[in-house]
Amino acid sequence: MRELPSASDLLAIAREVLLAELLPHLPGDRVLAARMVANAMGIAAREAAQDPGWIAEAHARMAALTGDAAEPLRAFAAAIRAGAFDPGTPRHAEAAALLGDITRARVAVSAPRALGKG
């Protein structure tokens, strides 16, 4: 029902205008600020374009690991601190894989270059 173009599309095209048409005309002491604006727009565009389904899926996997469905993130973090998923424990590999998946999903928005993309 929302009008097109989408938020991510608008942010992406606006960012192009900023970098290609506006940035070259800015005084040197404003270039860093403009680059930060472009960086923020890129992050927001990627977040808007990302399917948020991974969050509910990650919470379910955390709840399955800790048995706490009420506060899955908090319980998962606390269990790691307590050593519940140390190497040699039965669910170590499962916890490590989950951490990799949720971190990759967040890096894909915040710093895709770290994944060799963007």
């Binding site: 992050i43 490590a96 951490l99 990799g100 971190t103 990759r104 967040r106 890096v107 928005v109 915040s110 710093a111 770290a114 994944l115």
Partner: peptide, 11 residues
């Protein structure tokens, strides 16, 4: 937004 990449390096 630097934090996710740092977490990636930590892992």
């Amino acid at each position: 937004h630097l934090v996710p990449e740092l977490e990636w390096q930590v892992l």
